[in-house]
Design a protein around this nucleic acid. Sequence first.
DNA 1: GTGTTTGTTATCAA
DNA 2: CTTGATAACAAACA
Length: 298
Amino acid sequence: MPELPEVETIRRDLIDYVKGKKIKSVTILNKKTVRNKAVFFVNYLRNRKIIEINRRGKLLIITLEKKKKEKENKFLLIHLKMTGQLIFVQGKKSIAGGHSLSKESFSKAVGGALPNKHTRVIFTFVGNSFLYFNDLRLFGYLEIVSSEKVEQIKVNNYGPEPLSSDLTVSYLKTLLKNRTSCIKALMLNQKIIAGLGNIYVDEALFLAGIKPQRPGKSLKTKEIERLIISINSVITKAIDNRGTTFNNYVDSHGEKGNFTKLLQVYGRQGEICFRCGKIIEKCRLAGRGTHYCPNCQK
DNA sequence: GTGTTTGTTATCAA
DNA sequence: CTTGATAACAAACA
């Protein structure tokens, strides 16, 4: 379940691995994964370099090379949704049929050598390296779009990024002041704050000492201040620890995230609160499993 | 066979 | 138009 810290970890890795590399060929193993016409997608990417790798919320935005005759760059959007993985493999010189790499870390996380049965798209780079897009549940997608469309998506679909100066107390205050839905649902809304998902919303609300059931408009200024500090703190620590692996997430070399063992409430229902010793509870809010301490969170 | 996992969008209602 | 609530998507696992 990649959220902002997991996508950011992958983004940083991909900058090291594929930025500046030229795509030699693309193989689509599942047509549903690619939102463009398959022929266009494959032909457009062939012999084109990766220029930049950016992120907005949980969406990866890859800038593609502009050829001489073309007016502007296009962009490759990649959304991992629930179970998407992007795994980079540096192949050995001259191998025939498949590659194996440092198997140990890998075999558990993605089911052994690549490609596997969940591999949906394969990028082959000049220099015999590979980027595999795996996606068990087929919710994720890849799409080539114009610069106009990218700008549209960035502005219309996403609120301020955590860790950015745009996420201010006054912003959140005005947005929450008339909202009757619970703060948990509002924090999951990408148009209010970009990049948070089920895990980090629960963790941030615990840190802030706010019950997830509280209506948005019931939050006091002090609580909104605490909430923003908590969001930034949990996101920073999660990025530092290369994300959280609960089910499916692995980074671009198939390794799990280290934040899992630092979780305070997510997945800890029935266990003891590290802060007060009471039992962590779980309920359902906004259709999502929601974990909280009934004593620490008011 | 049943319930559970969740990012996002579609749909319907108010 | 905005907001909120819920289902749907899809596959695997306990």
